[in-house]
Design a protein around this nucleic acid. Sequence first.
DNA 1: CTGTTAGCGCCTTCAA
DNA 2: TTGAAGGCGCTAACAG
Lengths: 373, 373
Amino acid sequence: MAQHTDKDDRADKPSSPATLMDVAAKAGVSIATASRVLNGSTRKVRNDSYVKVMEAATKLNYRPNAYAQAVAKGTAPNIVLLVSDISDPYFASVSQSVVKAAGEQGVSVTIGVAANAKAELESVRKSVATRPRGIIISESEYIDAPERAELERELRQYEASGGRAVFILNRNLPFPAVDVANEVGARAIAKLFVDSGYTRPAILKGDDNHRSSKERLAGVMDVLGKAGITVDPRVIANGRFSRTEGYAAIMQMARAGLLAPGGDAAYDGAGIDSVIALNDVMGIGAMTALRANGIEPGREVGITGFGDIPYSADVHPSLTTVHLPLAEIGQAAVDCVLADRDDAGAADSAAGNRLIFVQSAPDIVLRESLPRR
Amino acid sequence: MAQHTDKDDRADKPSSPATLMDVAAKAGVSIATASRVLNGSTRKVRNDSYVKVMEAATKLNYRPNAYAQAVAKGTAPNIVLLVSDISDPYFASVSQSVVKAAGEQGVSVTIGVAANAKAELESVRKSVATRPRGIIISESEYIDAPERAELERELRQYEASGGRAVFILNRNLPFPAVDVANEVGARAIAKLFVDSGYTRPAILKGDDNHRSSKERLAGVMDVLGKAGITVDPRVIANGRFSRTEGYAAIMQMARAGLLAPGGDAAYDGAGIDSVIALNDVMGIGAMTALRANGIEPGREVGITGFGDIPYSADVHPSLTTVHLPLAEIGQAAVDCVLADRDDAGAADSAAGNRLIFVQSAPDIVLRESLPRR
DNA sequence: CTGTTAGCGCCTTCAA
DNA sequence: TTGAAGGCGCTAACAG
């Protein structure tokens, strides 16, 4: 039988992966040297030992243990991204771009989903435990939950220890945030709405303490008001920025007889002539709900969305909406999180809540769901 | 000025987070004890020292260093999931369920996107470096690329060192895989197709070496053939399971005059009466493409999808498709990856390519895109 | 029950 | 250029 002094002599089921020591031994150099050629940045090793190490490494199929490296150098190779629902196209798009942007800089991203404030707080706690380079929070609801204070403390602590927290579309907490011009976009779409001849909208908003929703709503309401349109409060509903809840909200209105002309109908019996959804998925849910009630969206009732998720072009009628640069948002968040600590200057850091506007004037995407009438 | 012997005496910008040692010191116990109450599973510590440690921990805002723990106990608290595109609703759904299922077991998931074989291989290499509990690969294309052998080696090595690799919807490599009854589903939808009176389909498939695509195609073709339908080869296209390419493929056919009746049209000038898409996003892309060419999907041309992604219910006409239990697939993959190594028995492990069927008879979801004619 | 003592795999001064 | 040695933060026997 062959003799070998390699590791793992015993008949092994799970032979543990090769370690740096193994490589060093096989290459006949010190572990330090091995480390230098395999991982160290500025290599200053003689060429022949370099080769020997490399050979040993490939032969042993060596893969550095990322965790051990992280522990040793005290800095992790990853960032974490928190979203409330990856299957939501909006978050999916943001996630995609975050992962891509991070990947280009060689850092991996751990995605966590946290559907509510409690879960979010817990996720943050767990995330902090991995000492990531940064934490990007793309959560949108529950901002003012009681957990908020706790969350802020946790993140502040995290920052104090050298971490970087960034929010996406949320400026309620004193941390850097990537944001877009919600109100500007809202005004633009509302103006289009008015100009197109609509006067009796149902409105699907998000939670009132949800900043994006609030800003968008403010923009819309202001333009509407100035155009002499008073929105019937009975057809303003909280769709929680979710497709399902948006759908449900419209169904509810239909059941109450608010939508189609008639006795109980909104706007003094005239019913609605449109749905203004403060994000796309609610708008899409609304379309389906309208159809379920025999109302043809885009013909009898106009629809607007907000966000321009990929699928807004594929629904029918295709959704007229406000374009949000989803990909750029993710990129910006990653840049912010990975930026050199010293770079931004004490001023910004001190401010704490630096704002990164990805775009100053959101474009509106004119499609079919809001025909001129 | 207050004197304290706590850590970090110097005026500190980034005061490093509290360590277990700090907590132990402040609580006046040994680091071992502190470890036991803070992390150790079966705690056997006196109550008062338990309290002291807890107090110290909260006061110091202690968070265990997950990496250090991982290194020390030689096992990581996470799994990695590889997909080719999170913004694709199919992958998004799978990801969502994987994250959820993993979360319930206290393990976090690192998501990587790898759009092609090379990126995938690299991702796997990087993943292995973090010694995760398992790797779930939900990639679907490029299965037979030259990197395949490399990938297999890498994963085999990973398994040998105690890791667990699982594929989703892919059984081309000798690893455990979660799969569904593609062919059964395909036969079902094809039968519905025939029974509904369609005879001249365009077909949108995926790569030929993509297993799911192949199986679905086989099922469809067989049923069609037996019904006496011969598919015009000019209207079979590779949409690569992507919305964009599906869209492009139909546009291409339209440009070639294949779709609408006429001289160049498929099926001896009769044109197509339907599109069979082997997954939903291609079906949805096809609808939009048809509309762009003045053809009303669901009226002039019937459409079928495969997968039942959330948005297939929201497009119009809503997509008749084969329901795939996306959530269960993710759950199954996680279960498999997290299963006790000894549990499954040597038999399964030896086989290497254990199959987990999530569902034996895929339901077909009857909606509006394939009306009887 | 608790403290002591080895490691885990790697990086990084510090001498040589 | 290289090796020896200490340390990162934590866990896990092993004695007390």
